[in-house]
Amino acid sequence: GHPTRKCICSPKQVSGYLSKVSGPLLDRFDIHLEVAPVEFADLSSTAKEESSASIRERVQKARDIQNERFKGTSITCNARITSDILHEVCPVTYEASKLLENVFDRLGLSARAYDRILKVARTVADMDGAKVIDKKHIAMAVQYRSLDRKYWNG
């Protein structure tokens, strides 16, 4: 999976490695991403990046939205949304629904992956301050499931 180095493993070794993590197990993770190695130019850059305090503030605003949404329930965050209230808590626009349908069909996702994508999209929308999940929120949530597509989907 390295972006610039060719893998020296045999197909059998790769298959053996991937078989250690089953699709159903991977399905239980809300977010899975590959993280590319950091380039020297990025490490040595003097460009200003967003501060941790600024990021923390955005995350806290999203957490406040969730705390208000789930006040009086045992639910503590979007990841813990139960299936009986999923669609009530995760309203989507028509465009978002169509994108999710296309992704579901094209990638052959499971019902569990569908729920996970909706919950992550709910969090993305909260970070955006949006009450309704839009197409861009679904698209970002789908991007956070890259391993489904790269290694375990055919």
Rank of each mutant, 00 (worst) to 15 (best):
G1F: 08
H2E: 04
H2Y: 09
R5Q: 12
R5T: 13
I8W: 12
I8Y: 11
Q13W: 04
Q13V: 13
S15G: 03
Y17W: 13
S19D: 13
S22D: 04
L25R: 01
L26G: 09
R28T: 04
F29R: 00
E39A: 04
F40N: 00
L43V: 03
K48L: 07
S51L: 13
V59F: 06
V59H: 00
Q66M: 11
Q66P: 04
Q66S: 08
N67T: 14
E68C: 10
I75W: 01
T76E: 14
T76Y: 06
C77E: 09
I81G: 03
T82E: 09
H87R: 15
H87P: 02
H87E: 07
V89E: 04
A96G: 14
S97H: 08
L99H: 00
L99V: 10
E101S: 12
F104T: 14
L109A: 01
Y114P: 07
D115C: 15
I117T: 03
L118Q: 07
L118W: 05
A121P: 05
R122H: 04
V124G: 00
A125H: 08
D128Y: 06
G129H: 01
G129P: 10
K131L: 10
D134W: 08
K136M: 06
K136D: 11
K136Y: 10
H137E: 04
S146D: 13
S146K: 11
R149C: 15
K150E: 15
W152P: 02
N153E: 14
G154K: 13
G154Y: 09
